[in-house]
């Protein structure tokens, strides 16, 4: 089922209020929550009125281009022009645009050193912090690095393993 508002993306959230209910995509839902939190809309009917589906398409486009991130005031047209987001919350407010850029840039999820930081999880420990207890883990990482042809990483791990086996900290 498609989003009841933009009619473009699949439904991910259903909002139930006294005014009725609406099935929205992630982007439209996110925007609803933010506009409501900042008091720019009172409820669902306000929100749908903003989109004003009875007006001509051009009015709808003009209106949505002027929709501004409640945190920093960046508008959609400014974002498209400058190719710069105005704050971290813009990535939620304009999440459809963020997804679009993400796809254009290759669409591969980040799985690097800081993966999991959204839960404020610290990245993995540094090699120098590893102790003899970590030897089995390090051997596994060494094999991985070699398999992936990450030679300097493999060297660094190998050096640490030899240090630890030599009893040096």
């Amino acid at each position: 089922m498609l989003c009841g508002l933009c009619k473009m993306r699949p439904v991910e959230a259903i909002i139930k209020t006294d005014e009725g209910s609406a099935s929205l995509c992630a982007a439209c839902f996110q925007r609803y929550r933010m506009l409501k939190a900042t008091g720019e809309i009172e409820g669902l009917s306000d929100y749908f009125y903003m989109y004003d589906e009875f007006n001509p398409i051009s009015a709808f486009i003009a209106r949505s281009a002027q929709m501004a991130c409640p945190s920093c005031g960046t508008t959609l047209s400014k974002l498209k022009n400058d190719f710069k987001f105005g704050c971290a919350k813009c990535y939620d407010f304009f999440s459809d645009k963020a997804d679009e850029y993400f796809e254009e840039l290759g669409g591969q999820e980040y799985k690097g050193r800081y993966a999991g930081y959204e839960n404020k999880k610290r990245p993995g420990r540094r090699l120098s912090e590893m102790t003899a207890d970590d030897l089995p883990f390090l051997m596994k990482k060494l094999q991985e690095a070699r398999d992936n042809q990450e030679l300097s990483r493999a060297d660094a791990i190998d050096r640490r393993i030899r240090q630890l086996k030599g009893g040096k900290q």
């Binding site: 987001f85 105005g86 990535y91 850029y101 980040y110 959204e118 990245p123």
Partner: peptide, 24 residues
């Protein structure tokens, strides 16, 4: 990262002004 509330989103990685710097 320990002391600041660094902007980060699952999948996108570090949030940057210009989306070309997203990820690492």
């Amino acid at each position: 990262h320990d002391r600041l509330d660094i902007a980060f989103k699952k999948g996108l990685g570090h949030l940057t002004a210009c989306p070309t710097n997203l990820g690492a």
